[in-house]
Write a protein that binds this DNA or RNA. Structure first.
Length: 559
RNA sequence: UGGGAUGUCGUCUAAUGGUAGGACAGCGGACUCUGGAUCCGUACGUGGGGGUUCAAGUCCUCCCAUCCCAGCCA
């Protein structure tokens, strides 16, 4: 129990670390989270973030935040800022360990010269098209570049001139000299430097050659003393190259790359490219649209950071590709919000109720728990009067078996208020129910009676005269199918978008809701968890539905 | 006739040659001033064939299925 709490759940990566610690290979564990600042973080990244920062926390180690900024054309400070904000919001702290791969450009360059002097790298004049042709195919070996056997001296001279900006983009690259016949395409003399006359968000115009990921990442890890370099499965094929480069150079250490399966989740897509499409083509309202699996979107939606961390714990870490049930996320969100969300009453689809034996014009204030799960959340006073509003679906003129909400002649409890009995049903000319005439039992104030009468049904309600208008944004899955990526012939993931994934509904709520501040979490009693949106104002409160409450009644198909 | 990986309840994940366990979802019940929460119970799994072993999810072997790789992206 104690061990489990202190080191988290067991997984194959922690097993490796345990062994390395036991054998004395390492005494201090250093991990890193290495995002490229070219997009927003999504829930897939939160798995990696929690993994790396979580290991550092549990092993008394350190997790570095290192931006993998080697492609200036794609990257921007805007992303650097949003990524740091998201990681902090998720509850992690990198202390002083903030790094940029671009911090290492000078060292990286020096190492490249070493490679050249040792005959392990060469300047190649092939055009991108030629290089592509000569790379071979998955089943056929590649062909060696005609420039492969230049002298070290010539290579050094050319590389220095590349750095000096003497050549145009695309005319020359620096390549590692490995094996054009390798079955692993990454080992077929991979490019390690290319010419890009681009402005870098940190180094400005100092450089016109930029190192490639494979070359940069392993050396950056080594320079920082990373012990375990944890990445996703698609880099498995790159590990031989990671190791090869470090084996050629006098680097301070040789970190171990370990790959794990990235997170996939039902009813959503996870790639930056696809998310960008959703944003760019206006299928959602920006990166922080509450339907997006981005950290920014989930934050706005109202998913608590603690729930996201809990999810990361629960899904575990392994090497088999998998798709996690969205239900598990919802469970984590409900679990957290149940403990923390303030209970209030709101009515989305109102039906008028008039209490015939309650004095007209009288308003009394009744005491209500703010959170039955947390007594320290205190109580509040809610207004009650003759004219009330209830949820239309809480009344049934012809109740089915097992129905214990309101019905003609039935008595139910109005939460925190009184026992109410339905006396009469008023309808308009076309037969629609317009109002319920009810009576209340004054002896049941607070929602209970001394005679021990058993009242099974409890409904939520609002005092009509004091209720305020609110806007609710009812979110559901962005996609109609579990896996939008496995498409039928001729369709794309966009064909599975659910046009009803956002339904905006004007509703009514307790007066106190006008004071809600953005990100405040609520449970609208018996309905769902809601969070005040960034758009909320005193005049026009706006709430995002985070997740509905579990509902074992409608699930039975009885509603 | 390329290389690299992975197959355990519906889903995710543990078991490191010795009782296949947990969580979510499901189902049933208890309880409840939220048909919420909580509590209890229940069903469901080692991709397949051979082999080694007293004993195999685990070791060997063959097969099958799935995923990743041909950017001067990361």
């Amino acid at each position: 129990m104690n061990e489990k709490e202190s080191t988290g759940v067991s997984n194959f990566i922690r097993n490796i670390i345990d062994k390395d610690l036991a054998s004395g290979k390492h005494v201090k564990i250093i991990t890193r989270f290495p995002p490229e600042p070219n997009g927003y973080l999504h829930i897939g990244h939160t798995k990696s973030i929690c993994l790396n920062f979580g290991i550092a926390r549990d092993y008394n180690g350190i997790c570095h935040l290192r931006f993998d900024d080697t492609n200036p054309e794609a990257e921007d400070v805007e992303y650097v800022d949003s990524i740091m904000e998201d990681i902090r919001w998720l509850g992690w702290d990198w202390g002083t360990k903030l790094f940029f791969a671009s911090d290492y450009y000078d060292k990286l360059y020096d190492y490249a010269e070493i490679l050249i002097k040792d005959g392990k790298a060469f300047v190649c004049d092939l055009s991108p098209e030629e290089m592509n042709k000569m790379r071979g195919t998955l089943t056929q070996a590649g062909t060696e570049s005609p420039w492969r056997n230049r002298s070290a001296q010539e290579n050094l001279d050319l590389f220095r001139r590349m750095k000096a900006g003497e050549f145009d983009e695309g005319t020359k690259t620096l390549r590692a000299k490995i094996d054009m016949a390798s079955g692993n395409i990454n080992m077929r003399d991979p490019v390690i430097y290319r010419i890009k006359k681009a402005h870098h968000h940190r180094t400005g115009d100092k450089w016109c050659i930029y190192p490639m990921y494979d070359y940069t990442h392993c050396i950056s890890d080594a320079l920082e003393g990373i012990t375990h370099s944890i990445c996703t499965l698609e880099f498995e094929d790159h590990r031989p190259l990671y190791d090869w480069i470090l084996d050629q150079l006098p680097v301070p250490c040789h970190p171990q790359q370990i790959e794990f399966a990235r997170l996939n989740m039902t009813y959503t897509v996870m790639s930056k490219r696809l998310l960008l499409t959703l944003v760019k083509d206006g299928h959602v309202n920006g990166w922080d649209d509450p339907r997006m699996p981005t950290v920014a979107g989930m934050r706005r939606r109202g998913f608590p950071a603690a729930a996201l961390r809990e999810l990361s714990e629960r899904i575990g870490v392994a090497k088999a590709s998998s798709i996690v049930d969205f239900e598990l996320l919802q469970f984590c969100v409900r679990e957290e919000l149940n403990k923390t969300a303030k209970r209030v009453m709101a009515v989305l689809d109102p039906l008028e109720v008039e209490i015939e034996n309650y004095p007209d014009g009288k308003i009394e204030y009744l005491e209500a728990d703010n959170n039955p799960e947390d007594p320290s959340a205190g109580k509040r006073l809610i207004p009650f009067g003759r004219h009330l509003l209830i949820e239309r679906y809480d009344f049934s003129e012809e109740p089915v078996k097992g129905w214990f909400r309101l019905a003609p002649g039935a008595e139910v409890r109005f939460k925190h208020a009184y026992y109410i009995t339905c006396k009469e049903v008023l309808k308009d000319a076309s037969g629609n129910i317009t109002k319920l005439i009810c009576s209340y039992d004054p002896a049941s104030k607070g929602g209970w009676s001394q005679d021990g009468r058993k009242i099974k049904g409890t409904v939520h309600w609002l005092c009509k005269d004091t209720a305020i208008n609110i806007e609710t944004r009812l979110y559901s899955h962005l996609f109609k199918v579990e896996d939008p990526m496995s498409c039928e012939e001729g369709k794309t993931f966009l064909d599975y978008l659910d046009p009803d994934s956002l339904v905006t509904k004007q509703a009514w709520g307790e007066p106190s809701l006008s004071e809600a501040k953005a990100s405040d979490a609520f449970q609208f009693l018996r309905l769902a968890y809601f969070t005040a949106d960034y758009d909320t104002t005193t005049d026009k409160p706006v709430f995002n539905r985070v997740v509905t409450l579990k509902d074992s009644w409608t699930k039975k198909g009885k509603a």
